[in-house]
Computed example of a mutant assay.
Amino acid sequence: MSTTQSERLRGLLEPLVSAADLDLEEIELSRAGRRRVLRIVVDSEEGVDLDACAELSRVISDKLDATDAMGEDEYQLEVTSPGAERPLKEHRHYVRAKGRLARFTLHEGGELVARILDLDDDGLDLEVPGVKGRKPTARRVAFDEIAKARVEIEFSRKDKKEEEA
């Protein structure tokens, strides 16, 4: 997608997404055969449910139909959340992932899987799980040390309500 079209779509859609109390994470335009696919990724502090995606999809569709932002060609609109293994790119992503297990690829090389305990403007306080019966260890990682980060799926993870009880 050209920068101009991307900027135009972001300018058009961001107010609609914000009005739904959501954050516009990504706009992706790709080809699927003859059709184009416009994928809008949204999120919030509480996450995004299917009903919110469906409602926002209707609002965005109406807005796109009322403008020439997508041109005359056919397109398919998808409004979705970042998913379970969401990438962590912005500071707000790390805030939302607090308490979650994440996989970090470090600039110095190597990977680290650890739980995000806390964070500030400079970096993260992590708990690295112990291996083979060893206790977990604390580690501090600065944001500028992280090349990539992604939330890991945990099948036996306690949710916040269980932890608070």
Score class of each variant (00 low, 15 high):
residue 37 V to H: 04
residue 79 V to H: 03
residue 51 D to F: 07
residue 63 K to I: 00
residue 114 A to Y: 02
residue 73 D to G: 13
residue 58 R to F: 12
residue 121 D to S: 14
residue 112 L to R: 09
residue 41 V to S: 03
residue 101 L to W: 06
residue 87 P to N: 12
residue 80 T to W: 04
residue 104 F to H: 03
residue 47 G to R: 04
residue 56 L to G: 04
residue 65 D to M: 03
residue 87 P to D: 12
residue 62 D to A: 14
residue 41 V to D: 04
residue 76 Q to H: 10
residue 33 G to L: 07
residue 70 M to Y: 04
residue 53 C to A: 10
residue 31 R to E: 05
residue 34 R to D: 11
residue 32 A to G: 09
residue 94 Y to I: 03
residue 40 I to H: 00
residue 123 G to M: 00
residue 40 I to W: 02
residue 78 E to V: 09
residue 65 D to C: 06
residue 83 G to K: 01
residue 75 Y to N: 10
residue 43 D to I: 00
residue 74 E to K: 10
residue 98 K to P: 01
residue 105 T to Q: 15
residue 39 R to M: 02
residue 106 L to P: 13
residue 95 V to A: 14
residue 92 R to K: 14
residue 72 E to N: 12
residue 44 S to V: 12
residue 88 L to G: 09
residue 105 T to Y: 08
residue 71 G to H: 08
residue 76 Q to A: 12
residue 109 G to F: 08
residue 122 D to T: 07
residue 99 G to R: 06
residue 112 L to M: 13
residue 54 A to H: 12
residue 47 G to K: 05
residue 48 V to I: 04
residue 37 V to P: 00
residue 96 R to T: 09
residue 29 L to Q: 05
residue 82 P to N: 11
residue 67 T to R: 03
residue 73 D to I: 06
residue 39 R to L: 07
residue 48 V to T: 05
residue 91 H to R: 15
residue 67 T to N: 09
residue 46 E to C: 04
residue 113 V to P: 09
residue 34 R to F: 03
residue 108 E to W: 06
residue 90 E to P: 13
residue 76 Q to C: 06
residue 49 D to F: 09
residue 62 D to G: 10
residue 50 L to A: 14
residue 73 D to E: 15
residue 94 Y to V: 03
residue 103 R to Q: 15
residue 115 R to K: 15
residue 58 R to K: 12
residue 69 A to Q: 08
residue 65 D to Y: 04
residue 40 I to V: 15
residue 76 Q to Y: 07
residue 57 S to F: 03
residue 109 G to L: 08
residue 121 D to M: 09
residue 122 D to H: 06
residue 46 E to W: 00
residue 99 G to L: 05
residue 75 Y to E: 10
residue 114 A to G: 08
residue 35 R to D: 11
residue 77 L to D: 04
residue 39 R to W: 07
residue 59 V to G: 06
residue 41 V to I: 13
residue 50 L to N: 11
residue 122 D to G: 00
residue 110 G to T: 11
residue 36 R to G: 09
residue 92 R to F: 07
residue 28 E to Y: 10
residue 122 D to K: 00
residue 122 D to S: 01
residue 101 L to S: 14
residue 83 G to Q: 01
residue 58 R to N: 13
residue 119 L to T: 11
residue 46 E to R: 12
residue 71 G to L: 08
residue 48 V to R: 01
residue 31 R to D: 05
residue 87 P to A: 13
residue 83 G to I: 07
residue 43 D to G: 01
residue 42 V to M: 03
residue 85 E to D: 15
residue 53 C to E: 03
residue 93 H to Q: 11
residue 121 D to H: 01
residue 49 D to H: 11
residue 76 Q to G: 06
residue 50 L to M: 15
residue 51 D to N: 05
residue 46 E to I: 02
residue 68 D to L: 11
residue 90 E to N: 13
residue 87 P to L: 12
residue 82 P to F: 02
residue 78 E to T: 01
